[in-house]
């Protein structure tokens, strides 16, 4: 087996792959969230932003999309394989095991991740290709959003995803710094302030869109 294969086969190597792809995905969600906030600058500005991404710099967009697709595939594959490995590592479970310090966020990484993956696929079909959108318009992106989130179930589905994204980031960003080895030694290693701030900023930033529509602030 080559060096790369050994790296991928090792539990630490796979976690590092998850960490690196995690960094890419975190970078993306921050950018995506920042871009989304232009929704509140009005339809023209927002549609122009969409046009920029979808037409003017479409080659660049595809490079980013390609990177993201590969990142998601690697992230999910590694997560799946590690989960299987971890399950096999305790064939007989305890009658009683009380979690002492692990956070809710850390314990929801797996099924939260599955939810986010489903959400991701739906979201692409919803706003990028328009398959699941009731009145999709190639050029009217602002309208696409404003119409979609009038549906309470859709808005709730999105808000749920953002809550889980917050949890995922809260644990993931902190764990990523430790997995990639750039966290500094700390007297209280379980503390995760940066991760907390980023998780709140990103999820709240995203949630503003569905919230503002479903609550009727934006019409």
């Amino acid at each position: 087996m080559g060096a790369l294969g050994k790296f991928w086969e090792s539990s630490v190597g796979k976690k590092i792959v998850m960490g690196v792809t995690g960094v890419i995905l975190v970078g993306f969600v921050i950018g995506h969230m920042a871009g989304n906030l232009q929704f509140f600058a009005g339809a023209d500005r927002y549609n122009a932003y969409a046009r920029l991404l979808k037409h003017d710099i479409i080659e660049l967009t595809w490079i980013v999309r390609g990177t993201l697709i590969v990142s998601v595939i690697l992230h999910v594959t590694a997560a799946y394989q590690l989960t299987m490995r971890n399950r096999a590592a305790r064939p007989a479970d305890y009658a009683l095991r009380e979690p002492q310090v692990s956070t809710y966020a850390s314990r929801t990484m797996r099924w939260g991740g599955v939810y986010l993956l489903v959400f991701l696929l739906y979201h692409i079909g919803h706003f990028t290709t328009g398959w699941f959108h009731p009145a999709f318009s190639e050029t009217g992106t602002w309208g696409n959003v404003a119409i979609a989130f009038k549906s309470v179930p859709v808005a709730l589905f999105y808000l749920g995803a953002m809550a889980l994204l917050a949890l995922h980031l809260y644990h993931g960003i902190w764990a990523c710094a430790r997995t990639l080895g750039f966290a500094r030694p700390s007297a209280n290693p379980l503390q995760r302030r940066i991760a907390l701030v980023l998780a709140i900023v990103v999820s709240v930033g995203f949630s503003l869109l569905p919230l503002s529509v479903v609550l009727g602030f934006v019409r």
Binding site: K6, E9, S10, S11, V12, K14, K15, L82, R85, N86, A88, A89, R90, P99, Q100, V101, S102, T103, S106, R107, M109, H171, W174, A175, R178, T179, P189, L190
Partner: peptide
């Protein structure tokens, strides 16, 4: 790390437990 994996232990998810 290779030996740790070979022994069938799980990977680290940083639960902190």
């Amino acid at each position: 790390v290779a030996q740790m994996d070979l022994e069938g232990f799980g990977g680290c998810t940083l639960f902190g437990e």
